[in-house]
């Protein structure tokens, strides 16, 4: 354990470089550059608000904020897990030639998406203020879902990164799975009807929905629900433990498969 921490310290700089590289390359050669991380969610929010707000005759004025909270967390989760899934293969040329602790690749993939996600929260602040949602004491709670989403994404990312080395099909399967996750996250609809219908487990069983709903409570000034908090926390940490375990078990075989 001590050796692993020492090793981590030694490669901290590389981790930083990989995170920087992810951010830099994502927006390189586009005119707006990093500003895209603000413009993109804003544009998407406008589209979703028009489709699900105006066309479905939803007259809640704060609906865009509702959409944005869900969309931001979901898109971090989906981008982060997708990037980790392919991270080992993307860096195959490096892995084959130099020794580097391999978990750095999925970890840096998740972290660089997290940085972009944190930057894009600026949009949320702006839109919320414009639509008249002002911060309350409960906003402090937001730190909990913001950390949990990072842990959950890292855990899923490690599991996917490991499996992705052995089965290329996973890339496509995961895209479909992400769609399922998206629809069960209540990003652009109110969950009330579903929660009352006896199918509430579809939402409540989805840890990402739990995290999103906690985040919304914080933004809209409501207290956290205890059961949701406990479920999401346990689930997130469990994925990390499973992820680290299988990654550690399999990592020496990676090189034979890439």
């Amino acid at each position: 354990m001590k050796k692993q921490i020492e090793n981590f310290m030694r490669y901290q700089f590389l981790l930083g470089e990989l995170v920087k590289k992810g951010i830099k390359l994502k927006y390189r050669r586009s005119y707006l550059g990093i500003i895209w991380s603000l413009v993109e969610p804003l544009l998407e929010m406008i589209v979703l608000a028009i489709v699900f707000g105006t066309l479905f005759e939803n007259d809640d004025k704060t609906f865009p904020v509702y959409i944005l909270t869900g969309r931001l967390l979901y898109s971090f989760f989906s981008q982060g897990t997708k990037a980790s899934l392919t991270s080992i293969r993307r860096n195959a040329s490096m892995i084959k030639k130099v020794y580097v602790p391999k978990y750095l690749y999925p970890l840096s993939s998740v972290l660089f998406n997290y940085v972009i996600f944190l930057i894009s929260l600026i949009v949320l602040v702006a839109v919320a203020l414009v639509l008249g949602i002002y911060p309350t004491v409960y906003l402090v709670e937001a730190i909990v879902p913001l950390l949990l989403v990072l842990i959950l994404t890292f855990g899923c990312g490690m599991i996917l990164a490991t499996l992705g080395v052995f089965f290329r099909d996973l890339e496509y399967l995961w895209n479909v799975a992400l769609m399922l996750v998206m629809y069960t996250c209540a990003i652009f609809y109110y969950p009330d009807r579903l929660l009352d219908s006896g199918f509430d487990w579809i939402l409540k069983g989805n840890p990402l929905y739990c995290i999103i709903s906690m985040f919304r409570n914080a933004v809209f000034g409501r207290p956290l629900e205890m059961t949701t908090l406990i479920y999401a926390t346990v689930f997130s940490f469990a994925t990390v433990i499973v992820g680290l375990f299988i990654f550690h078990r399999q990592q020496d075989k990676f090189i034979l498969h890439i």
């Binding site: 030694r10 490669y11 700089f13 470089e17 990989l18 830099k24 390359l25 040329s93 130099v98 580097v100």
Partner: peptide, 22 residues
Amino acid sequence: AGFDMQYTGAENIYLYGAVLGY
């Protein structure tokens, strides 16, 4: 082996150096 083709030479010095554990 650790070079990134989109990066400039200067950026790659830092990246490859980090890969080698400097």
